Simulated scan of single mutants.
Amino acid sequence: MTQTSFWQDNQQTAQYAELCNALYERELAALVRGEFTSAVAIQHRIKSLPYYIKRTAHAMLQSQSPLDLDTVNGSWSAKQSVKMPLSGQEDAAIWQWYKSSKLRPGLVVPVALADRIILDCVDRLDKQGQGFRTNVCGWFREEAKPEMQNFQLLKPNKKVMMAACCGHSWQNNKKARPVIPTLRELLLSCAINWQNFKQSLFI
């Protein structure tokens, strides 16, 4: 082992420890605020934390993301746009993009809420090819009326995915304080293929 590689390994180990610590602090705070129906539910959540935190920290350090990694806060950072990046996100354009993609379970997709964009992933395809279901937001079908939902499926592009990864938020068409993405979203952010949004990376 050369002196250079030894230094790099030590730096990577320090960043990994710092990142794990930040993620643990955040998840424990979320557990305190959470509402659980039984002690068993919270026990299962705590039991799974080490696995998901270690996996997420490792994936974030190995990611080829164009975003800046903040190991102290356990988050991605990038310059925020003045308004939510919804240019070119008309219904027809969105579904044209998804129809031209060979969708597979696990594909990372962006979904717009009222004030921010979140990351979700495809977990089931409609047998007739009329839509798909995502893990958190449920079914999306072309004929469904957007006004009946409190969220909107978006087509991925660099600005949209960067905003989702960084937790950028807006209120009254003005920039607001970023929201820290969930542990699940952070893990999904590492599966984004920045060279081809129609395919996800294996993590």
Rank of each mutant, 00 (worst) to 15 (best):
R33K: 15
R33G: 09
A39H: 12
S200T: 09
P178I: 00
R45W: 03
P110I: 02
R33D: 15
L125N: 06
M1T: 11
Q62M: 13
M148S: 12
K83I: 02
L31R: 10
H58R: 15
E185C: 05
A114E: 07
R33T: 09
P66E: 01
C121Y: 10
G138Y: 06
Q171G: 07
K198D: 12
P66K: 02
Q80M: 01
L125I: 10
L103C: 08
E185F: 03
E185I: 04
G74H: 02
T56R: 04
Q130C: 09
G131N: 05
M84S: 03
S101C: 15
A17K: 15
R124K: 13
G131L: 06
G129K: 11
Q195H: 13
A59D: 11
A29D: 13
Q152S: 13
L23F: 03
Q96S: 12
W7A: 15
L19D: 01
V82Y: 05
K198C: 11
A144H: 11
P178D: 01
L119R: 02
A191M: 12
Q199D: 08
M162A: 09
F132T: 01
K175E: 06
K145N: 13
V82H: 06
I42P: 06
V72L: 13
G106M: 06
S48K: 15
E147L: 10
Q171R: 10
Q130T: 10
Q3E: 13
Q8R: 14
L67P: 00
V40K: 14
Q43P: 00
P105L: 08
M84W: 02
S81M: 06
A30Q: 15
A59P: 06
K158H: 10
I180R: 10
P156M: 01
N21K: 15
Q130A: 13
V82E: 08
V108G: 03
Q12C: 09
H168T: 00
N150P: 06
N196Q: 12
L187A: 10
A14F: 07
I53P: 01
V32M: 09
K174Y: 09
E35N: 13
A176S: 14
K155T: 06
T71G: 02
G131M: 05
Q130H: 14
N10A: 09
V72M: 09
W139R: 05
V160A: 00
A93F: 06
D91P: 10
I53Y: 03
Q199P: 02
Y98E: 04
